[in-house]
Simulated scan of single mutants.
Amino acid sequence: MTTQPDIDPSRLAAIIDFLQAAEKLKDTLRSGITSNGRAESTAEHSWRLCLMAMLFDRELAGYDRLKLLKLCIVHDLGEAISGDVPATSQTPDDGRAARERTDLETLCTPLPDDLRREILGLSDEYSGGATPEAQMVKGFDKLETMLQHLIGRNAADFDYEFNLTYGAQHTEKHPLLSQIRQLVDAATRERITHGA
């Protein structure tokens, strides 16, 4: 085993400061409900998104898998400051994207320049759907949300019809996403027809 030199103490402190601030994502609640009936956190959503990317590794052989995981981790990180806006409340002109970008910049303030640039760059890549990896993560993100809607102990008046159109432009970008979408849509229709 090779011995690595100690990390610069100021770099170490900056990374720890960032990690402590990012911990707020654990308490950032989303509108999704878990199978046990409690609100899920954005951190939990991001974890399951990473799990999806990992489980479909074989099907994503031509993709940069490390980048996929990094995009999954970073995609909602800005929500640690201002919180999540439920998908049903989002509109194209709500300013959410700009606010989340500003929040992410604030969150990344303590980081060394190289790490700050990397995280902000990954966030921009995801937001713009600039690469095949970003497009795949956007599709997985929508599908993870819909899967949570299907398994969650939702209120009696939950609008399952929402799932049938949610994120369609992102889930048609790859055959794997489309195939998963077909299963999710079928389960959604079943839930609409037969109830919880």
Rank of each mutant, 00 (worst) to 15 (best):
H45Y: 08
H45P: 01
S46W: 00
S46T: 13
W47N: 08
L49K: 00
C50Y: 02
C50K: 04
M52N: 01
A53R: 01
M54Y: 09
M54D: 08
M54N: 08
L55S: 11
F56P: 01
D57C: 14
D57S: 14
D57N: 12
R58H: 15
R58M: 12
E59I: 02
E59Y: 12
E59A: 15
L60P: 05
L60T: 11
A61Q: 04
A61R: 09
G62Y: 07
G62I: 01
Y63V: 04
Y63D: 06
D64R: 02
D64L: 02
D64Q: 00
R65V: 00
R65N: 09
L66E: 08
L66N: 03
L68K: 02
L68W: 03
L68H: 01
L69T: 01
K70N: 08
K70M: 06
C72Y: 00
V74E: 01
D76N: 11
L77N: 00
L77G: 02
L77H: 03
G78H: 04
G78K: 04
E79K: 14
A80Y: 00
A80S: 15
A80I: 02
I81T: 06
S82V: 01
G83D: 02
D84C: 06
D84E: 11
P86L: 08
P86R: 07
S89T: 05
Q90Y: 13
Q90P: 00
T91N: 06
T91Q: 15
P92H: 13
P92M: 13
P92E: 14
P92Q: 08
D93K: 14
D94F: 07
D94N: 15
D94S: 11
G95D: 07
A97T: 14
A97W: 07
A97G: 13
A98G: 10
A98H: 12
R99Y: 00
E100V: 09
R101H: 13
T102N: 12
T102A: 12
L104Y: 03
L104H: 04
T106R: 13
T106D: 05
L107I: 05
L107D: 02
C108R: 03
T109D: 14
D113V: 13
D113P: 05
D113A: 14
D114Q: 13
L115G: 00
L115K: 10
R116M: 03
R116E: 05
R116S: 07
R116V: 03
R116T: 08
R117V: 10
E118H: 12
I119C: 06
G121D: 09
L122R: 01
L122T: 03
L122G: 04
L122E: 05
L122Y: 07
D124Q: 12
D124M: 11
D124L: 12
D124F: 10
